[in-house]
Design a protein around this nucleic acid. Structure first.
Lengths: 232, 232
DNA sequence: ACCACAGTATGGTCAGACCATATCGAACCA
DNA sequence: TGGTTCGATATGGTCTGACCATACTGTGGT
């Protein structure tokens, strides 16, 4: 017997339909950050699906950092459109590192690339360096490796922020978050952080003076100092 | 009356607990790609939660590209650990672009950065260029802008693959996916693709000859040709 | 050795209930 | 008039239990 009809190669799950509908509404209605989505029950009725399916779609959107759900009542309750790609990227990196489908080496190389680029951009753009100086001061006051790394992270994320590219900045934050433990160990192994401090000052001054090439060199040498075992 | 106890500042939802438990088991049991998670009902019973909560956790893991669920019965059924960060990143970018919380300019600048780096790495590592050549041939045979862009994407992703860094490669694929429509329009506006072809050949040869600096220059000039409106 | 078919484990979906939380609003009191 | 209290209500969070669709498993017959 001949089979004239098509069989769908890939089933479409209900929550995927819901996702598509929500995405369509975002595009068509021009929704943006701060706007509210309909309530779960309402959305379920509108789309003719169960609330469970709507909830699964919400979970996806929340995971991707696109909505944030609050309970209760009032203007702030419900699912609100947000823009938090950072935690999504952080979760992504952490889980894939945990699965050993990514290696720390790859994360650090990526960070190296981003940081050079961001420092050069910041220098070329004559970016504000007050956040960098503040982080530097924080490192000077740090009394544990954890504290030091916290402010060190702030310093390097501030460079990414200064580049003016929000995607780069988000990736940078996620990279730093996911390698935090590793960084603490690296600082503890290093013991003396005075070399790192000199590197930071050099980076800061290069950006302040608008010297992009020098900023790139400074970043590169800084990473070689911080993670000597990874550089050939 | 004094309140001696702490009130949790942030409620913990059940599915977040489930996520943490699954992540812990992945780490403790050393689970990796290809291993199976317990069935939803079984997991729910083990953790003392409802199946709904387990399912919401699964949806999150699936969104992050860490598990893949198949229905049915047998060794391939159920939730299997995978490593597909690409679609997660693609969804992330697409949604945030849709919310106007990211601009195409930022995506293209990021691509510029990655591509320079990847080309330099590939050149320095003496990477295999057969995939690049194949993509080049595909572009020559393309008869529509869509077809051209498809092979063009393959070419540039092959550069990222050749860098040997899977994180970079995944980001590259996502960037290209999310800017696909934009690329097609750019090619249509351009009309003649012979300049792009010359650029591609130049990039390919630079990588083959191991000339990292020339590869960087070639990539940079190529992007300036492809998106003239974005370059100062 | 092959094939047909019932059994079963799996995810997918639904309906309906109840809970916790936060606001709103009306009634009440000063 | 102003404030306070407290019930109503809208929201997400969770659970239960059912049923469906799918795809393998095993059994029994040929």
């Amino acid at each position: 017997m001949e089979d004239t009809g098509w069989r769908p190669v890939k089933r479409t799950r209900t929550f995927e339909d819901v996702l598509a509908q929500i995405e369509r509404r975002i595009a068509e209605d021009g929704l943006t950050v701060g706007d509210r989505l309909p309530a779960e029950r309402q959305l379920a009725e509108q789309l003719g699906v169960s609330r469970s399916s709507v909830r699964e779609a919400m979970r996806v959107l929340e995971t991707l950092g696109v909505v944030s759900s609050q309970v209760g009542r009032g203007p702030d309750a419900g699912a609100v459109l947000t823009s938090r790609p950072d935690s999504a990227l952080t979760d992504l990196l952490r889980l894939h590192l945990g699965l050993a489908s990514l290696e720390m080496r790859e994360v650090i190389d990526t960070r190296h690339m981003i940081e050079q680029w961001a420092a050069a951009q910041a220098a070329a753009a004559g970016a504000d360096t007050s956040a960098l100086a503040a982080a530097l001061a924080g490192m000077d006051g740090a009394r544990t490796a954890e504290e030091f790394v916290e402010h060190d992270t702030a310093f390097h994320c501030a460079i990414a922020d200064a580049s003016g590219n929000r995607l780069i900045a988000a990736i940078m934050r996620s990279l730093r978050d996911s390698m935090r433990r590793y960084s603490v160990e690296a600082v503890q192994r290093l013991g003396d952080t005075s070399i790192l401090r000199a590197d930071h000052v050099r980076i800061l001054e290069a950006i302040e003076r608008g010297e992009a090439d020098e900023a790139i060199r400074a970043v590169s040498e800084h990473l070689a100092h911080a993670y000597p075992s990874l550089f050939r």
